[in-house]
Amino acid sequence: MQNTISARKRALLPWLVPVAILAIWQLTVQSGWLSTRILPEPRAVAVAFWQLLLSGELLEHLGASTARAATGFAIGGGIGFFFGLINGGHKLAESLFDTTLQMVRNVPHLALIPLVILWFGIGEEGKIFLVALGVFFPIYLNTFHGIRSVPPELIEMGRSYGLGGRALFQQVILPGALPNILVGVRYALGFTWLTLIVAETISATSGIGYMAMNAREFLQTNVVVLAILLYAALGKAADLAARGLERRWLRWNTAFLAA
């Protein structure tokens, strides 16, 4: 009994500060101390959320952004995973590709935006391209590192137990690299939303970033704040999903590290 109460209290404790901030925010705006042109009151943000949800606009923009994020992530992540695997597994591939990839890595992908607009205009391709580029490197680097960090003793053991080729990869190398790969996935998800925020703000006709820029022209600060909060929520959701995968696939890891 004592335990359940203290556990519940502990679960609520992290939310104390955010709730306090929200309350102070509401009070400062309501009292007129802070202009609604600088920051709308939280209630107005909630109202904007509700109205946009009812009109269907919100889901439309949310869908457009999510589709871009998912497509870009799949393409960039897929290519990064592929290069991580072959460069981690074969010395020849590493000497052929790694130096080039490391050089490209030093170019901040957001610096390519003017070029991307020239190439693709303001269509979908440009934004997906940027997301894919942003996702590629964290996935590539962590997959590569993960493959390399599989203990050679385990690979030798697998071979001496008759595993080779596919079986060795599926049963020893990939599970051994998985903790690192998932770290890469979490980084990549962060990059996905960051890239999308910038790309949609600069050139788009749909998506959350477009919604925010549109609202700015009409001085709808509550919609702008809503867009920012939506990005935060999407980023958080993606991170939670990645953590869920970690918890599911790396159940052994806690036991292993504790021992």
Binding site: E153, Y161, A167, V172, G176, L178, W252, N253, A255, F256
Partner: peptide
């Protein structure tokens, strides 16, 4: 022992 840490005990024994 070189057991695969991501497999439970019986699946380690069943390796190969």
């Amino acid at each position: 022992a070189r057991l695969l840490p991501w497999r439970n005990v019986v699946d380690n024994v069943a390796l190969g």
